[in-house]
């Protein structure tokens, strides 16, 4: 399965003079199995872009192709796109509404017209994916803690079994352990089920540690589409865009400036540790 955006642009208010593009001439291809991060300052167009990806917004120019088929062509069932490309909004827990967690997660599969048994089977699988076991099935979503609500809401999208899952800042407001747990579950989903992931995040550390591809938006344009290792080498350019790099990148640059012969393209604490030990001749 692949989703291709070809020279896509979107203008929210085309009738005003000098309309401002929210997304400006973006081309990219997403594939099942990959793990992409998407970063960009507030208002850079990330949210608009992800809504174009799952067909909630129709681009003003350009085309969106699902396995080669134009999704906005007359007769194309947009529902297929929304099922195959799942989108978890920011603070999705505000959208929980059913009496029980299980019913809530069944809502999507129910809408797909699946028989009740399969609805529940999918819902249970999705809940276990996000670390919520059978004890939660009959709980009211409103009794759950903030982190659990977030998981239940993500399970609701997972139960549609999308090939690509887009998550818009899924860890905002979670404590460090909650962030790590949720990201580990997303990684597992990617590795075990091959679900393609697009992780929209304001945490440079998180995308550095988890993504293998990094998309960077600035003023409606896609300015980088590369590995995180390469992208964070441009930390000065990223700063000019209101972004930054993981702290370890700054540590390595500071050490290099002081004359220590270290590689600067590290992404994680583990990599930084090994590189520093090597440079100091300790390993």
């Amino acid at each position: 399965m692949q989703l291709e955006l070809k020279s896509v642009s979107l203008v929210y208010d085309p009738d005003v003079q000098n309309p401002k593009k929210a997304v400006d001439d973006i081309s990219l291809t997403l594939r099942k199995g990959e793990f992409a991060g998407l970063i960009g300052h507030t208002g850079s167009g990330k949210s608009t872009l992800v809504q174009i990806m799952n067909g909630l917004l129709k681009p003003t120019e350009g085309t969106v192709l699902l396995d080669g088929q134009d999704v906005h062509e007359k007769g194309f069932p947009l529902r297929n796109l929304r099922r195959q490309v799942g989108l978890v909004f920011q603070y999705p827990e505000y959208q929980l509404f059913e009496e029980t967690v299980l019913k809530d997660v069944c809502f999507g599969p129910k809408n797909l017209g699946l028989p009740k048994e399969e609805q529940e089977e999918r819902a249970k699988k999705a809940l276990s994916r996000v670390g919520l076991d059978a004890r939660y099935y009959d709980a009211s979503p409103f009794e759950l803690s903030g982190g659990e609500k977030r998981r239940a809401a993500i399970a609701g999208v997972l139960a549609m079994e999308p090939d690509i899952l887009i998550l818009d800042e899924p860890t905002a407001g979670l404590d460090p352990q909650g962030r790590n747990d949720l990201l580990a579950e997303i990684r597992k989903l990617n590795e075990e089920e091959g679900t393609g992931i697009v992780l929209v995040s304001h945490s440079m550390e998180d995308v550095a540690a988890y993504a293998s591809r990094l998309l960077v938006m600035n003023h409606a344009r896609l300015v980088y589409d590369d590995t995180p290792r390469h992208v964070f080498e441009h930390y000065k350019e990223l700063e000019a865009m209101g972004l930054s790099a993981p702290q370890v990148v700054y540590v390595m640059h500071a050490l290099e400036a002081r004359g220590l012969d270290v590689r600067t393209d590290v992404l994680t604490i583990e990599e930084a540790k090994r590189e520093i030990l090597r440079a100091l001749g300790r390993k």
């Binding site: 404590d175 460090p176 352990q177 909650g178 550390e205 993981p246 702290q247 370890v248 540590v251 604490i269 583990e270 930084a272 540790k273 520093i276 030990l277 300790r282 390993k283």
Partner: peptide, 17 residues
């Protein structure tokens, strides 16, 4: 469930080594 800043954790790991 808490953590420390990345640079603090890196220093901690290096101390362990």
């Amino acid at each position: 469930r808490m953590s420390v800043p990345e640079v603090t954790e890196l220093a901690y790991e290096l101390r362990k080594e």
